[in-house]
């Protein structure tokens, strides 16, 4: 465990909690893509099946459980409790265009052709693109609430910190996982445009709105 990995995990946790609190406090999930949140719930479910097969550390187990629980709570709030506020008309990204190719790729390119390993690979690939429905929704409506941009910032920062963590681990531990690194690079690149808008607009106190 190095500082980049730890801050990456905490940044991920911050993103998840910010989103939950935003929905809970405002009693509304307006502007949030339920499809992205469903994909993240699927990501955590397929990745953390090793909770049943191996124990790594108390930290590892508790963080996994927290991520899974929070992602299901978010999906519940969007599709059940605050369904009336869900902006389904703008959440029109076709998720099958992500899930099907990612599913195929995880069968073709993986570390080991075993069920758990394929599901783990699937979750890594899917996570890298799971934010697309959310970004698509923002590009469609042309704006995002400031709190939603904080959520996206921490979510993007998390994988960027993981990239530094992997460079660190490569040099100091000889650890290198090509699948995770390539997917992590793709994931981080998807946020670059958003990072630019976040720094140039949101951090200067302006609302994130895209030119018409």
């Amino acid at each position: 465990m190095n500082i980049f990995r730890l801050t990456g995990d905490l940044s991920h946790l911050a993103a998840i909690i910010i989103l939950l609190l935003k929905i809970w406090k405002t009693r509304s999930c307006a502007g949030i893509s339920g499809k992205s949140q469903l994909l993240f719930a699927l990501v955590f479910t397929t990745r953390y099946l090793d909770l049943f097969t191996s124990f790594i550390s108390l930290y590892n187990t508790s963080m996994k459980l927290i991520y899974v629980a929070c992602s299901y709570a978010t999906v519940y709030l969007i599709y059940m409790k605050f369904k009336a506020t869900y902006d389904g008309n703008h959440d029109t990204f076709r998720v099958e265009f992500l899930v099907v190719p990612v599913g195929g790729l995880s069968f073709l390119v993986n570390h080991d052709f075993s069920p758990l390993e394929i599901l783990w690979t699937f979750s890594i690939y899917l996570e890298s693109v799971a934010i697309l429905p959310q970004l698509f929704m923002i590009s469609k409506t042309g704006e995002a609430e400031t709190i939603t941009t904080h959520y996206l910032f921490f979510l993007g920062l998390y994988r960027a910190l993981y990239l530094i963590n992997w460079i660190w681990r490569y040099y100091f531990e000889g650890f290198f996982d090509l699948i995770a690194v390539v997917a992590g690079v793709v994931q981080t690149i998807l946020y670059c445009d958003f990072f630019y808008l976040y720094v140039t607009k949101v951090l200067k106190g302006k609302k994130l709105s895209l030119p018409a």
Partner: peptide
Amino acid sequence: EDQKIHKDEL
């Protein structure tokens, strides 16, 4: 053990 290594990350 190699297969388990990446599972220490989240």
